[in-house]
């Protein structure tokens, strides 16, 4: 299996199936773990609704409040930068759209490749910055676990391998593409079992938060 084309086909075939399987299994389990636990009945007299405030928080929590922005500008700016970069690259790069279409049957217009390329480069720089920040900021350093570094490495390798493959810096291309897909597969496999879960559960968490505060009449 040292052959790049064999390697690519392995990653596009059996390994991808495996990754998707583990991912789907794990992620469904994670979400069910949350939903089945549910919430206890609340007998207090509500001041506001839950559904709309919940959904509102799902959206608004993406934007930091001015005080947080002032006190943690790095977190906010760099966090935004690389998250946005990652999402743009993931969802608006034509080959990714083709992949998603094959998996889910959904499709949408993509962005020009040079734009995605630039965004990817910015994402990589931002990711490096987050690592430096994690190592140097006393709070982040204190609360970081090995998992944080593992996840950082996976995300970085995922973006980096995509960048190298697109710019054809690693050759031959089947090897480069295979490496990128392999990174994506490892990413998918660990996703449900690490903090990467937040990609999906963040919506649930924010909703619960917004609903809880909203019930008490606070826009959270």
């Amino acid at each position: 299996m040292s052959d790049p084309m064999d390697f690519l086909l392995l990653t596009k075939g059996p390994l991808f199936n495996l990754a998707v399987t583990v991912f789907a299994l794990g992620m469904a389990a994670r979400i069910l773990e949350i939903l089945v636990n549910g919430r206890r009945p609340n007998y207090s007299e509500a001041r506001g609704g839950q559904w709309l405030p919940g959904l509102r928080t799902v959206l608004t929590r993406s934007v930091a409040d001015p005080g947080t922005f002032k006190r943690a500008p790095f977190n906010v700016v760099v966090g935004w930068l690389w998250h946005l970069g990652f999402i743009v690259t993931l969802l608006f790069f034509i080959p990714h759209i083709a992949l998603i279409k094959s998996l889910l049957g959904l499709s949408w217009p993509g962005l020009p490749n040079p734009v995605v390329d630039l965004v990817t480069a910015v994402t990589l720089v931002a990711l490096v910055a987050t690592l430096v920040h994690r190592r140097t900021h006393r709070v982040k350093r204190r609360i970081s676990t090995p998992e944080d570094y593992l996840v950082w490495t996976l995300v970085f390798l995922l973006v980096l391998s995509g960048y190298l493959a697109y710019n054809r810096i690693i050759n031959p291309y089947p090897l480069a593409l295979g490496l990128h897909i392999l990174c994506a597969e490892v990413f998918l496999i660990v996703l449900p079992f690490t903090k990467l879960t937040h990609i999906f559960t963040v919506f649930i968490a924010r909703w619960y938060n917004g609903a809880s505060f909203g019930r008490r009449g606070v826009e959270s």
Binding site: K12, G13, F16, N17, V20, T21, P95, L99, L103
Partner: peptide
């Protein structure tokens, strides 16, 4: 397309 897996991944999903 080249980026699409060769296997029936959506079934597995």
């Amino acid at each position: 397309p080249l980026s699409v897996p060769t296997g029936p991944a959506s079934d597995y999903l």
